Amino acid sequence: MTKQEISIAFVAAFIMVLFFVSPLAHAAGASEEEQQEESFSEPVQELTGRAGDISVYSHIYGADFMTEQERCNYLLKLDGMKTKEERAAFRARHHKEIDKRRKEKGG
C-alpha cells in the first residue's frame, strides 16, 4: 500500500467512526429526565395471563379488582403518556378508583 492509499483508508475509517460514535455520544448525553422515561415495549398480549405462579399484572395496583380489558386499557393508556407527571396523575386517579372498589366489595 502506498502512503496515499493508507491516508485514504485512515480518513475513511475516521469518518466512519464519527458517524457511528456521534449517535452513541448523543444518547449518553441525554438529560436525566429523558433517561428516566418509562417504556412499555412488550405487546399487551404478552402482558396478559400468568408467568409461573406470579400474575403478569402484579405490578398494577389493584389488578385483582380489574377486568382483563381494564388491565389492558390501563397499560395502553400508561404507555401513551409522555411525561412522568402525566403518569403520576393517572396512577393517583387509578389508586382512588381501586380504593373505592375495594370499599364497595368490603375489602
Rank of each mutant, 00 (worst) to 15 (best):
H59P: 15
S41H: 04
F40W: 05
T48H: 14
M81A: 10
G80R: 10
G107D: 14
A88N: 08
G29A: 12
E70P: 11
F10S: 13
E104Q: 13
A28I: 04
V44C: 09
Y57L: 15
R71V: 09
F40E: 07
H59W: 03
K82D: 05
G49S: 07
I8A: 12
K103F: 02
F14D: 04
M81I: 06
Y61S: 06
G62I: 12
T83C: 04
M81F: 06
R101M: 13
A25W: 01
A89W: 01
K100Y: 11
E33N: 09
A13Q: 10
L47G: 05
A12S: 09
Q69K: 12
A63C: 09
F10A: 15
A92Y: 01
S58C: 10
E86N: 00
A9S: 07
R71G: 13
E38C: 02
D53Y: 12
Q4R: 13
G52T: 02
K103V: 06
R50C: 09
Q69W: 04
L76R: 13
I15N: 05
E32Y: 00
E104V: 01
I98T: 08
G106L: 08
E97K: 04
S22W: 03
F65T: 13
H59K: 13
R91W: 07
Q69A: 13
R87G: 03
M16H: 02
K84V: 00
Q45A: 15
Q35L: 10
Q36P: 00
G49E: 12
C72D: 08
Y74K: 14
K100P: 03
Q45L: 11
I54P: 06
Q45S: 10
E32V: 04
A92F: 00
P43C: 09
A27D: 03
F65I: 15
R93H: 07
M1D: 11
E33I: 03
V11A: 04
R102D: 05
D99E: 14
N73W: 14
D64E: 15
R50G: 08
M81W: 00
L75W: 07
K103D: 00
I54F: 10
G107N: 15
H26A: 11
E37N: 09
A89D: 15
R87W: 02
M1H: 05
A28E: 04
K77C: 14
S55T: 03
V44K: 04
K3S: 11
V11S: 03
M81K: 08
K100Q: 08
F19R: 05
Q35N: 06
Q69N: 10
R71A: 09
Q45C: 13
E33M: 03
E68K: 12
T2H: 12
I98Y: 02
K84C: 08
E38P: 00
K96C: 11
E86A: 01
E68P: 15
H95N: 12
Y57H: 14
E32I: 05
C72T: 09
P23N: 01
G29F: 05
P23G: 00
V17W: 01
K82N: 05
K100A: 11
A89T: 01
Q69V: 04
A25M: 04
K103L: 09
Q35D: 03
E37F: 05
A63L: 12
P23L: 06
E85K: 00
S55N: 12
A27Q: 05
K3C: 06
H95Q: 15
E42I: 06
V11G: 06
I15L: 11
